[in-house]
Simulated assay, not measured.
Amino acid sequence: MIPTQFDYVAPATVDDAVRELADAGDDGKVIAGGQSLLPVLRMRLAAPAKVIDIGRIPELRGIRDDGDAIVIGAMTTHYEVQRDPLVREHALLIATATDTVADPQVRHRGTFGGSIAHADPAGDLLAPALAMDAVMVVAGMDGRRSVPASEFFVDYFTTSMNPAELLVEVRVPKYTGWHAHYEKFHRVAQSWSMVGVAAMVRTDGGTIAEARIGLTNMAAVPVRARAVEQALVGQAATAENIKAAAEHAANGTSPASDGNADGEYRSHLARVLTGRALSAAIG
């Protein structure tokens, strides 16, 4: 199907992009890598009057060290995130989650910020961002503001950004030396996660000192499995303790029922996959 007619602009700076968004109002859409927006346009599930292409803004690309955090530009591709040594060293959870995103073609075109801003509850990068307490930096007509991941995701495909704001970068605190793994279950290769688990732990002499776990597709937004985290801290890093803690994975969640799975099955998957993710992370 062919999209409806729209105006196309390609601003060269963040300020220009924000002005274009403000001018378009609710009738504007931002396109980054295009892996989420283009299918929606083709199916005419969206009909914006103006599409703002931010692919020509140099400021939005790249990964840098900023003291106690690494900063990932919104237009940085999944491929670049996968291979960046800073991400592998200080944010291993994001690297392992990005390894599972779609296929190589999509990872070369899709962008880290685009996935975050799209806010699909089945997207694989939201739960890691939440588990790591990432902070989203957004730009608007009144300047820039920082929004923690716990406040950024509001509902299905909905963030706390207003229509005239643009995601500029994501600040990820460093978790150097932490063990991490992302485990997901999907029906076929490259499909969306039915459930995913982002697990990250810090061990000290064979004991779990800290744990952070985010769940994908267990609610309208990514959620923390805090009951599992609490059950793990202070325990020996054994298979028995991991299995016992993983039984709490679905506590406080509200998984949807759809054509892929019902809520009860998703709760079962959350428990199983949490155990697998923790076991793989700790090794």
Rank of each mutant, 00 (worst) to 15 (best):
Q190Y: 15
K184V: 08
S267G: 11
L167C: 02
I57F: 01
G205V: 09
A189G: 10
A47W: 03
L273S: 01
R44W: 08
A47S: 14
T158F: 00
G55I: 06
D103S: 07
P85Y: 02
K50F: 06
A270Y: 02
M132N: 09
G275D: 07
L86C: 12
D65R: 00
A12T: 15
D155Y: 07
G34V: 09
M141N: 14
R19A: 14
A149C: 10
I31M: 06
V135P: 07
A245C: 07
G28D: 09
G34Q: 03
A277Q: 06
E183T: 12
A231W: 13
A225Q: 06
A91W: 08
L278G: 02
R276K: 15
A97Y: 12
G263T: 04
Q82Y: 06
T274W: 02
G259F: 14
V87C: 03
M194K: 04
G62A: 01
P121K: 10
E169W: 04
L45Q: 08
Q35W: 05
A134Y: 08
A249C: 01
T98E: 07
D68M: 05
G34A: 04
N251T: 14
G62L: 03
P3N: 03
A24V: 07
T216I: 15
T77W: 03
G34K: 07
D7E: 15
P39S: 05
E183H: 13
T98L: 03
D262L: 01
D7W: 01
A69I: 11
G67K: 07
A12H: 13
T4L: 10
L21D: 09
A244V: 12
R56N: 14
H90V: 02
V272K: 12
E165M: 08
P148E: 00
R19C: 05
H90K: 09
R171K: 06
E80S: 12
A281C: 12
N162V: 13
V30N: 05
L278M: 05
D7F: 01
V170N: 01
V188P: 02
A245V: 01
A281T: 10
N241D: 11
Y156M: 08
G73E: 05
N260E: 13
V51K: 01
L125C: 04
G143H: 11
A245F: 10
D16R: 10
N251P: 02
A131V: 08
T13I: 04
A246Y: 10
A127S: 14
K50E: 00
A244D: 13
Q190S: 15
K243M: 14
G263L: 06
H268E: 11
I31E: 03
